[in-house]
Each structure stands twice: as structure tokens, then as C-alpha cells.
Simulated scan of single mutants.
Amino acid sequence: MTALQITAVQRNEPRAADACCTSAGAPVLGSEEAQGKAHLFKALADPNRLRLLSIVKASDGGEACVCDLTEPLGLGQPTVSHHLKILVDAGLLHRQKRGTWAYYSLVPGALERTAGVLATL
């Protein structure tokens, strides 16, 4: 704590960090909401996962088999499956099992909601 902050505490004044959050009257992002949004951004923070989203979106019928996703990325099936699971857990992709293969498609509206997340900060 700086000398100025200590003086403010001694006088019972709000610190600058406390005051800045409420001075504009705008809603403040809560801890749980911030964690949820961070989870989404962490899922998008990997170039391979961004490529997977792009490939799935551009695929015929808007879906892609996991068997078709390993070659474009140059990664093994376990690694691709791990990235896909992260995207599913983040609510960006939907997984449908058909026989021995899993097919992935974009969750309707997921990209639009993701784009709107920053606007709500």
C-alpha cells in the first residue's frame, strides 16, 4: 500500500480502486460472471481451436467428423479431440456421436453471443 492509500484508509476514505468501480454507475462484472467469460476466452485463445471452429463452420452442412479434422491441423487424433472437448465445454461446438465417429457443429448463435460478450463489459 502506498503512503497515500494508507492515509486514505486512516481517514476512512475510499481508495481509488474502490471508487473507480462505481463512479460511472455502470454495472460491475461479478466474480462468477468474469470466470465464465474468461473460460470462453481461454477456449478461443489457442490457434488450433480457432482453426477448428473455422473448419467446422466452413464444412459442408455445417458439421465435420473428427476423422476429417486431424489432417488439416497436422495434429494427432487425441490432441484434436482434446481441443474439440474444450470448445464443446465452452458452449461453442455441439458433439453428436454416430457409430464410431463424432461429428461437430457450431452451436446456433454461439459466435454471435461470443462477439457480444465484450460489448457487455
Rank of each mutant, 00 (worst) to 15 (best):
N12H: 09
A43C: 08
V88A: 05
L111K: 12
Q77F: 11
F41T: 02
S81W: 00
D89W: 08
G91D: 05
A38E: 12
A8L: 13
V117L: 06
E112S: 10
S81G: 13
I6K: 15
R113K: 13
S59A: 09
L44H: 07
G99P: 02
G74R: 08
S105E: 05
H82C: 08
E13K: 12
N48D: 12
G36H: 04
M1P: 15
S54D: 12
L53I: 11
L40H: 03
S31G: 12
A119L: 06
L87Q: 02
T7G: 07
V107R: 15
P14T: 02
L50E: 08
E33C: 08
S81D: 09
P47S: 14
G91P: 07
L87F: 04
G25R: 01
H83Q: 01
W101D: 14
Y104V: 05
N48Y: 03
L44E: 02
V107Q: 11
R98T: 10
R49E: 05
D18E: 15
R11A: 09
L53P: 01
V9C: 13
L44N: 05
S105L: 07
G74C: 10
L29A: 03
V66A: 07
L111R: 08
C65D: 15
R98N: 06
A3L: 12
L4G: 13
T2P: 06
A16K: 04
A90G: 01
R51H: 04
A119I: 09
H39C: 07
K57A: 10
L50K: 14
Q35W: 12
D68T: 14
K85C: 11
L118M: 13
A16T: 15
F41M: 04
L69N: 00
A115T: 03
D68F: 14
H94A: 05
L75I: 04
Y103H: 10
P14V: 01
D46L: 14
I86E: 09
M1F: 03
Y104A: 03
R15S: 03
F41K: 01
Y104F: 08
T2L: 10
L111C: 06
A58E: 15
L106V: 11
L87V: 04
R11C: 08
L40E: 00
P14E: 06
A8G: 06
L93R: 04
H94V: 13
L121V: 14
H39F: 13
L121S: 02
A45T: 14
H83G: 00
